[in-house]
Design a protein around this nucleic acid. Sequence first.
DNA 1: CCGCATCCCAGGCGATACTG
DNA 2: CAGTATCGCCTGGGATGCGG
Lengths: 118, 118
Amino acid sequence: MKKTKKICPDMPTCSVDYAFRRIGGKYKGRILWYLHEHSILRYGELGRTLPDVTTKMLTQTLRELEADKLISRKVYHEVPPKVEYTLTDVGQELIPFIEHLRQWGEKQIKKEMVEEAS
Amino acid sequence: MKKTKKICPDMPTCSVDYAFRRIGGKYKGRILWYLHEHSILRYGELGRTLPDVTTKMLTQTLRELEADKLISRKVYHEVPPKVEYTLTDVGQELIPFIEHLRQWGEKQIKKEMVEEAS
DNA sequence: CCGCATCCCAGGCGATACTG
DNA sequence: CAGTATCGCCTGGGATGCGG
């Protein structure tokens, strides 16, 4: 199976692989989706929207999305501090995909509930 | 942040979360995509198509996709054995979105190459 | 309010060997 | 050919506490 192991594991093997690395993980999809729904969200608002996230994971995930230029981060140097997150144009391009995925998920959830009531 | 911890971690928090759990992981997206491109693929063909997968991960991932009813598995009881994998109807529904994602990925890769030639 | 630092754990993932 | 079985790493992710 493993033929020559001349593989650089940091290089995506194809464009599907590339894309999934950018939106994979536990929170990235939801963050992009919530940012689309609300246009602008502050750090704390995002944290409250994701009921299971810790500050570490929230910060880490936001930094990764920012490095991949899917979201942008605007800092207000005031007291108390304030940081706003928005989708970039590139991030916007992913929304149709996530929207359809969300609809698919809703359909499957409903289908499962019917089956459980067997 | 963590308010009451009355969270069942196995319950998806929303439909986006639900969907990402089913297509997340390192190989699921690519497997679905390759199955769409080739209609039918045998176990060994899938392994050769994913240059970095081990038999353990391939089998495990295929079983998860089968349990979620995104792919179906057909066993031929012959010698040598033969197993064919295909997309189910539900799995087919995900293809437009993976296709969209793949195109987006291709565009980004090209964009990055231009930037590197700065 | 928005984080960063630290410690820690589970499980996703990998390598290798073996089987019907 | 199409998997199982073991073992073990390693990193994604969680809990807690501090800092500007």
